[in-house]
Design a protein around this nucleic acid. Structure first.
Lengths: 208, 208
DNA sequence: CGTTACTCTAGAGTGATACTCTAGAAACGG
DNA sequence: CCGTTTCTAGAGTATCACTCTAGAGTAACG
């Protein structure tokens, strides 16, 4: 089964990769199953053997790419980094991933539609909460120590990702040509003001 | 021409309204031209007389709704309101519009796609800059007076709209059931820290 | 080797649907 | 009342997602 399993995996993965490429080039409506099949050198039968429909392939692709994005964000912070440092890293991780994985980001944020993510809603939520949990492991202690202002996890995310996302979407859609990373410093500065507790003018604690 | 113009307008507008309704119910792919035609009681010929394609109707609808959204936001601030007041009003205007015009908001932010907005890119940009200009008339003096921190217009927008939009999208897509307006206060507080200059501890100017 | 069971490949066929085309009705201008 | 333009009508067409049937490849077991 080993060699066969490997072949199956490549056939399936070829289809997924081809799907990403074609969706990126032609959009979801523009992309035809035929184009994806051809690019992956798979027959019609194979396509519908692995995926029940074009939407199902799209949904699978969505979850796979979401996982990669989450991995990139989670890797940005560890328990050793402070409030400002962590905020800066999260924002940079988001901007870097979007720019360096343009295709994937375009798929996640521009092409994918909530309507055909519905069958996958559960898995999506599960992934989201795993991400939230991971970030909370870094954030909660800082809130407890008063270095980060108290707010819910989702509000915190909205402050970190939201503004950056405006620039990312404009860039991904082609509406704006400028690299969103050009805004990194100012976005970080704003986010820090929004969520980090102001210095109390005593660095006493750190000086020990 | 007067009566005819009125009829033409209703035939065309009926199609646009029907399009919005059907897109909201079935999504873009799910919506058939036949369904839109039927709902608007228009023949196939009429449909393709007014709009060259389904996408063209979608694009026209996009611009129309974008204009309504912009109008709602612009109406929020006038030259008489201060920094904090203005920031709060902009955020509330956004949240209110999204919740009160759920269909339209869903269309703008969830259903519409950059791919078929391309033929309209120019008009979209023009509308965006008219909005930016209007908000700048309120913001620029406050920046000059040092009440708002200096940043580009687009960064300012990203701070106001970005975080709110995270909640709005989650709500519009059905991923989250909670009314985004519940977050209004905390979002405003964060935005104020992000973009409003801190009090210099003298309310002298105001006390005169 | 033979048999059975299962997964995957193959591609012809089908139904739905976006869009085209041709013809005529309705409104308006002179 | 005629000519022109705008709009309506619906039959026709091409494309595309998806179905169906048949069979090839592989493994497990005797």
């Amino acid at each position: 089964m080993s060699r066969k399993a490997a072949q199956v995996a490549t056939a399936r993965d070829d289809l997924l990769a081809a799907g990403l490429a074609v969706f990126d080039r032609d959009g979801f409506d523009g992309a035809t199953v035929a184009a994806i099949r051809t690019r992956a050198r798979a027959s019609n039968g194979s396509f519908f053997h692995f995926f029940g429909s074009k939407k199902e392939l799209a949904g699978t692709l969505f979850l796979e790419i979401l996982a990669r994005y989450h991995a990139a964000v989670v890797a940005a912070v560890d328990e050793s980094c402070g409030a400002r440092e962590g905020v800066a890293r999260l924002i940079r991780a988001h901007l870097d991933w979007v720019v360096n994985s343009r295709r994937e980001a375009r798929y996640l944020f521009e092409i994918s539609r909530s309507e055909w993510t519905e069958g996958i809603r559960g898995a999506q939520r599960a992934q989201n909460s795993r991400l939230a949990e991971a970030v909370e492991r870094w954030r909660a202690p800082l809130v407890a120590r008063g270095e980060l202002l108290p707010m819910t996890s989702s509000v915190f995310f909205s402050q970190i990702i939201g503004p950056a996302q405006i620039f990312c979407r404009a860039w991904l859609s082609g509406r704006d040509r400028a690299d969103p990373r050009e805004q990194a410093e100012i976005l970080i500065a704003c986010a820090i003001r929004a969520v980090v507790a102001p210095d109390v003018a005593d660095k006493a604690g750190e000086a020990v």
